[in-house]
Design a protein around this nucleic acid. Structure first.
Lengths: 340, 340
DNA sequence: ACTGGCACTCAGTCTGCCCGAGTGCCAGGC
DNA sequence: GCCTGGCACTCGGGCAGACTGAGTGCCAGT
């Protein structure tokens, strides 16, 4: 059913006003602030219908209307047009990210920038191991039967793990292992390494096989346990900005934000497509976050997606602005990563 | 002036009751709950004096009394006796930390544990570079004129930085540098490395000198920029537990907690002595944290102090319990670090 | 199909009121 | 001289009632 044009216009106006003022909006102020070319009575009728259809809601009789999650969803899907970043914001984006020293720095700067631009809580996932490629593997002989494995990926991530060997191994053998492992694995996607390493174990000279086996175990563990693990967070103080929205319910939100697993889930939908995802209120699986919306996107060098980033705020948020910020930041981080 | 014994007893009772109930405490309930062996009228007189002396404060006429920062200070210094952890807490402490895989894991588990034990915000500083020793330096030849420096410390920290060389360097030369650098620096305190490296630069063969110079610069930078930098945080959700204390003023606290510099300052007093530090309310330099108290301690393997950890909560906190938890955790983390 | 008008509803605010917890002080007792 | 019981006083918090104003729904008229 093609929805009445004016009703949509009214919904858009309600969302805009409510986001701006944070107060239920009534028919009269609506016609004053937006030039809908009809009377308030007409608007009232439209509002009644919108309420029947579940797009808006009245906190109590004799109060104005507030958009429902469904209303925001319609707004986001059909009514909002992305508003581009201001020149100042664009400058900040470049200034902030260009000075980054290494991956850690890039991620930290990104998350702070995002929090600042959107004035909300920002989340940035480190480039996920499983989507990266091996740039280099280094083995450090700590003691006779103990190695440290250092893995450097093309996204700049560095992971290190201890490898306990079943018995002492000679320095030369370590060097040999190091060479072959690097020959075979460099450039490989991390997801392929288990197979490759399995092959290496089989090919290895008998005396090196136990060492190789342990090494492969550790590599696998690293992939599994650390695969997607790291996350940076900023802007939690911004939650207090909306104390009205979250009256008293700040607690579960803060708790959720402390669980890395949950944060990863938030960004989880960001798959290989770099498309923007928006989850509004109830659409959120995590119970504690039913009062919030999440805007997320994938990022990565030149179209590739190696990680996710996003923003979390009250359902009553400035969607066009937030979307623009998330999209711009994701894009630019991708460029920065591509340069390294 | 030796303060009247009973007045101290009254102050202690006030602190205990207020911490427990979070409500101003009056003379009557005081004599009921604690067996001070005098009447409420007498207690009232004592309270009047305590108020004159600035240890307690009356929010308004006809309300009970609340301890002031000065009152808490006296309580902490003279009136409280540390209450040991319960058996369950002690078990949790061991169970939590014994499974740690590597330094990252130790720090994360520690900070969560501390937050959980104290039900407050916990902060743990990673072992500071400047107080650690070099265990191994690794140079990875990424491209002809680009190295990656990986530094592993005896506390398990791993730092990596890119080194841009002035020109291409042969693989063999890199190996040579790697060997000499390791020979000279392994086991050295990081604070000594600048001197040592300076010596290395001077001794180096002419053709390696530029490479060595750049390497030394990066090492220095790492020390300076990353020296104390890393911090882990947990339990921010616990701030909402005390919504009464922080009514509305949650904002500045969250903001402060996001600034690593500020967190480091919090733990800053933790110097070479592993003694416990307590800062109560106003004693805090950071303006946003004037409503909070911080209990911190140094930790490290076998008496050495390599980093700080602590807890932040409302001035109205359970000092004896918090002190016990901080002390126990600091001690046990030290042991865990010593084992590696 | 839109508009103006009107009666109605109801959250929020303000007022006055009372209650009770808590105090300060004083006179008397150990 | 220190402690106690008693008493008058203060003041925040809670409750009830009145008022206000924003906002609605509906209806009759254009």
């Amino acid at each position: 059913m093609p929805m009445d044009e004016r009703k949509l216009e009214v919904l858009r106006a309600i969302v805009q006003d409510y986001v701006a003022t944070q107060e239920p909006v009534g028919s009269k102020s609506l016609v004053e602030r937006h030039n809908l070319r009809v009377s308030s009575a007409t608007v009232r009728n439209d509002m009644a219908v919108l309420e029947d259809e579940g797009y808006i809601h009245q906190p109590h009789t004799s109060a104005g209307r507030v958009p429902t999650d469904k209303g925001y969803r319609l707004f986001v899907d059909r009514l909002s047009q992305v508003k581009p970043l201001t020149a100042a914001e664009r400058r900040a984006l470049h200034r902030f990210l260009d000075g980054a020293l290494d991956l850690d720095d890039v991620v930290h700067r990104t998350v702070r920038l995002l929090a600042q631009l959107t004035r909300q809580v920002a989340v940035v996932q480190y480039p996920s191991l499983s989507r990266s490629r091996v740039r280099h593997l280094e083995l450090v002989h700590l003691t006779a039967s103990r190695l440290m494995l250092v893995m450097i990926t093309d996204t700049g991530r560095v992971e290190q793990r201890l490898v306990e060997l079943p018995g002492p191994v000679a320095e030369d053998d370590v060097l040999a292992i190091r060479r072959t492992v690097n020959e075979k694995l460099t450039g490989a996607r991390l997801t392929e390494t288990p197979k490759l390493i399995q092959a290496l174990v089989e090919e290895a000279a008998a005396e090196l096989r136990p060492a190789m086996t342990n090494l492969s175990t550790v590599l696998l563990e690293t992939l599994v346990e650390r695969g997607e693990e790291r996350i940076a967070l900023a802007g939690t103080a911004n939650l207090t900005r909306h104390s009205l929205d979250f009256a008293g319910s700040l607690r579960p939100i803060l708790e959720a934000l402390e669980e890395e697993v949950i944060l990863l889930k938030l960004l989880g939908e960001v798959d290989t497509s770099a498309a923007l995802h928006i989850r509004i209120g109830d659409e959120n699986e995590i119970v504690g976050l039913r009062a919030t919306s999440v805007v997320s996107a994938g990022y990565g060098p030149s179209g590739d997606v190696v990680g996710g980033l996003g923003v979390l705020g009250p359902t009553r948020m400035d969607y066009p602005g937030t979307i623009a910020a998330v999209r711009a930041v994701a894009r630019y981080v991708g460029e920065v990563l591509a340069q390294n």
